[in-house]
Write a protein that binds this DNA or RNA. Structure first.
Lengths: 116, 116
DNA sequence: TCGCCTTATCGTCATTCAACGATATGATGT
DNA sequence: ACATCATATCGTTGAATGACGATAAGGCGA
């Protein structure tokens, strides 16, 4: 029950191998997936958030709000978009929420972009 | 002056080395650039167009319209978006227009996504 | 020159997006 | 139980997007 929670749960420091993605990188399905992911990244604020989460090994939570020149509600909206795209995951950690990158999904994005 | 133009001008079959991009893949500038590129890709039709152009070694023009279930004007709009993002280039080839991928820019996109 | 073919642009409409402040929700510590 | 802090959601507004048909623009061949 330590109060310095945050971390532990999220953002594995030593990344597990995680089974490789066998889904195709071409075809209508893949096109739609790439479009969805790209759209989620298609805003500077969301790119910044992704970088923030990638940079800090541990997943920060609302510190994101402090880093961006946007209202808290706006940041929350952007986080929602990223979450819905599966690029980010939020774990409730006491009174706050700890966000971290979903490495699987990020790899998928890279694979799809790489297939172009 | 052969009439089977299309190709020749566009889409070099043997890709020139092209000087590598020295611009940073991080920072506000890069974030904005990634967001811009991602946004351009953020629609299934545009992903399809990109694939089409990548797949065919030569750059096709209005055949794109035939490949997509969209009105000609809509496809033209999507091409405009891709063109404005620099992902695609259009060369006038007689009465038609030959589109092809801008490899430099596509590489840039890959580099930016890869930096995440 | 005239008409044809190809592509871009215009005008319109419905939808989505981005931003904000205000407010609800939910967990903590007192 | 309460006040508090952190986050999500709501409601609104203006701007951007996506789609289409109609129309303009530009080059070619007859």
């Amino acid at each position: 029950m330590s109060n310095r929670s945050r971390k532990d749960s999220c953002a594995p420091v030593t990344v597990a191998p995680e089974a490789p993605d066998h889904r195709p990188v071409e075809g209508d399905e893949a096109d739609a997936e790439l479009a969805e992911l790209a759209k989620a990244l298609g805003h500077p604020a969301r790119v910044q958030i992704m970088r923030l989460l990638v940079r800090r090994e541990a997943c920060i939570c609302g510190d994101i709000v402090d880093e961006l020149p946007l209202a808290q509600s706006t940041v929350s909206q952007h986080l929602k978009v990223l979450k819905e795209a599966g690029l980010v995951k939020g774990e409730i950690d006491g009174p706050r929420v700890c966000y971290c990158v979903e490495p699987r999904r990020l790899r998928r994005l890279k694979a799809l972009v790489g297939s172009l």
